[in-house]
Simulated assay, not measured.
Amino acid sequence: MNANRNTGANVKSTTLGCLEKFCAAARRSTGLADFGDPYYRTGLRILLRSLRREAQLTFIGRMLLGRSIATAVEQRLMIQHLRRTEPQIFKGRLMPPVIITGMPRSGTTFLHRLLAADPAMRAPVLNELLEPVPRGSDWRRRWLDLRLKCELAVMRLFNRGLDARHFTRGEEPEECMFALAISFRTVLPWTLAPVHSYLAWLSTADRRQKYREYRDILCLLQRRDQERRLLLKAPDHLGGVAELLAAVPEALIVVCRRDPVVALTSLNSLLDGVHKVTSRASDRAALGQSNLAFYAAETGRYLSAYATWRGHILEVDYETLTRQPLEVARRVCERLGLAIESGLARRFQEFIANNPKDKHGRHLYSPSDYAQTAEGLRRNLAHYG
């Protein structure tokens, strides 16, 4: 028994040591010391423990996860520095943003990039979301952009079907969960590696402070262009809609709804491809079980939020989105009190014509690949069907 207690103490000490290493490196890199509210340390500690015990990261996995964590803790320091030195940034009026969410693989990316064709909306790109507070010189910025480009190219090289599953480039609109990495309460680490215990913890983690910080991030993003409405998206928000709207009540939340069995199986396939590159512990059955447990809880949380906040939420059916995307765009604009003029309609139609389904390749998947059945999934997700 004593041996077990000592082992546990050593594990905890090692985990905290890793956490302090990341924080110390961020202090040296930025010259700053205040990380703000310490709530983030719980998620970071659990993530680091999960990475060490479960993930068995490859070289590519260590590179991606290490950079993600390092960037997030640096951004915490820099955002907190701005809160102290330029508090007016976070106190001004926030133009009501449009925030798209839903289960992963439910059409959120297509709708996000379709609406981004509207010049009155601004959808931040991946490079910007990774660093809401940009650092250093133009030379450093170019170096960081090149590094991201190389990392994405490596992922595509080792995961040949990645573009067919989710097309990602540094200069393309992307999910705002990348900016929320500072909270260590997002699914981002799970999308990169099989951190099962972190995902299980995240399912029940408190999200209120995460969304208070999200509002600050929106203020930082809006500062770059005060005239255009922010357009954001992340399936990561689905289970946090209530907390999001409590922090950003100005927002219009657009929720894409798709058959949850199809959406979940498609997500299994997407993450399976990534995990095989980043981890030596990739396990399809375990992946399917973790995703099912997490999204059964997330969809339940969303339905509870919808009952309270339905006046702030517009639901979009996936089949309607794929068959009548222009009509869906009209509905979003009408909800904002805007009309689609002929020039904007042409922009939308051009995007639709240039982005047909399966443009980057066909994505095939089956529940049986993950030791699941459509019937079993439907029973577990019946509340969201």
Rank of each mutant, 00 (worst) to 15 (best):
C219L: 13
P249Q: 13
A307K: 07
A116F: 05
S13F: 13
S266K: 07
E327A: 15
E341S: 13
T191Q: 14
A117E: 06
A3P: 03
L245I: 07
A296L: 00
F59T: 15
A181Q: 11
P173C: 08
S106G: 09
L377S: 02
K12I: 13
G239R: 08
R28H: 09
F59G: 06
N159F: 15
L321Y: 07
P189A: 09
E172R: 12
R257D: 12
Y211Q: 01
G361Y: 04
K21Q: 15
D369M: 13
R330T: 08
N380A: 10
L114I: 04
M1R: 09
K91M: 15
L157G: 02
R45E: 08
R141L: 07
K210P: 01
K359W: 02
S68F: 13
R83Y: 03
Y211H: 05
I99K: 01
A297S: 04
A24C: 07
D358L: 01
A164L: 05
N10G: 13
P97G: 12
M63E: 11
L48E: 01
C333W: 14
G107S: 05
N380P: 00
A281P: 00
L64H: 05
L326D: 04
L115G: 03
L381W: 00
K210Q: 13
L230Y: 11
G17T: 10
W139A: 14
A285C: 13
R93M: 10
L19D: 02
T108F: 08
H363E: 01
T30L: 07
R362E: 10
S290Q: 05
V254F: 10
G376L: 07
C256T: 15
G273R: 03
E250W: 10
K359Y: 02
L188R: 14
L32R: 14
R27V: 15
R141Q: 12
A200E: 14
P189D: 14
P104G: 09
H81T: 01
W143K: 10
R142W: 03
V274H: 06
P194M: 02
G107A: 07
L16A: 11
T101I: 00
L238I: 07
W143C: 11
G385Q: 15
N2V: 15
C256P: 13
L344E: 06
G239D: 05
R140A: 11
T58S: 06
A24D: 09
L364S: 11
T15Y: 08
L180W: 08
S282E: 12
R160K: 09
E341P: 06
R135F: 06
H196K: 03
L238T: 00
A382W: 12
V133R: 04
L344P: 02
R93S: 07
R301F: 09
E315T: 14
M78C: 12
T299K: 05
Y198A: 01
T168V: 15
M103K: 00
Y306L: 13
T265M: 14
